[in-house]
């Protein structure tokens, strides 16, 4: 557990010192979301109809953009090798890094999401559900993304590769995340959607650290 905290603290400190990364993710999210009204026209009811989907797709893309930094810098300067040699298990270290990634990308996205919802004229009845769905969905994005980030270590043009690897795996989160908000807007219960998202989160929490740790070990061999 102390190893988990040590890595978490260090990654958070690094993210704070290089604050640009988090700001960039949120800025990307805002810019992408803003493009849709230009593309589909400013009709309020159309925007309200697509708002939840647009917010989720933009959030997926923004989260994906930042995946590379989970391991890449540590891989390049030899830190990852030394982390693998530390007495702490790689799975624990991976969890620490993923939590740091979520705190510096997922959390800012959750805070920015209601603002974008207002801009897209989303019905107020969906706001709370959107927040809960993102709270359940974004950690899963970081967890799944970490596998992709670890698999591309050492590959050239990794950024493109990671999106091809990870985006298909994000589809369930997109479907249920957008579905939950839509259900709430139509006055129906979003509980089932949110329960499935919770299940996805638990599943990824249990399974992905092992896959990611294995991918990291392969990369540094």
């Amino acid at each position: 557990m102390s190893g988990f905290m040590a890595v978490l603290q260090r990654d958070l400190r690094l993210a704070l010192r290089q604050g640009a990364d988090s700001v960039m993710v949120v800025a990307f999210f805002i810019v992408t979301t803003t493009l849709f009204p230009f593309g589909v026209g400013p009709e309020a009811n159309i925007l309200a109809r697509i708002a939840s989907g647009v917010i989720w797709v933009s959030a997926l893309l923004a989260a994906m953009l930042s995946l590379e930094r989970i391991f890449q810098a540590d891989f390049e300067d030899g830190t990852l090798e030394l982390l693998a040699l530390s007495p702490v298990s790689m799975e624990m270290l991976v969890l620490g890094k993923v939590l740091a990634h979520w705190l510096t990308t997922g959390l800012p996205l959750i805070i920015a999401a209601p603002l974008m919802a207002v801009m897209l004229n989303m019905d107020q009845s969906g706001f709370v559900t959107l927040m809960i769905a993102m709270l359940l969905g974004t950690p899963a994005l970081s967890l799944i993304g970490a596998i992709g980030a670890a698999l591309i270590l050492g590959a050239r043009r990794g950024g493109v590769l990671v999106s091809l690897l990870v985006l298909p795996l994000y589809i369930p989160i997109l479907i249920f995340g957008a579905g939950a908000v839509e259900a709430a807007q139509l006055g129906m219960s979003a509980t089932e959607h949110l329960q499935i998202m919770g299940a996805i989160l638990l599943l990824t929490l249990a399974a992905t650290p092992f896959a990611t740790a294995h991918a990291v070990r392969l990369a540094i061999e």
Partner: peptide
């Protein structure tokens, strides 16, 4: 064990 590799693993901002 303590291992010293080719890379120094030093973070520029810390």
């Amino acid at each position: 064990l303590q291992y010293l590799g080719h890379q120094d693993a030093i973070k520029p901002v810390l």
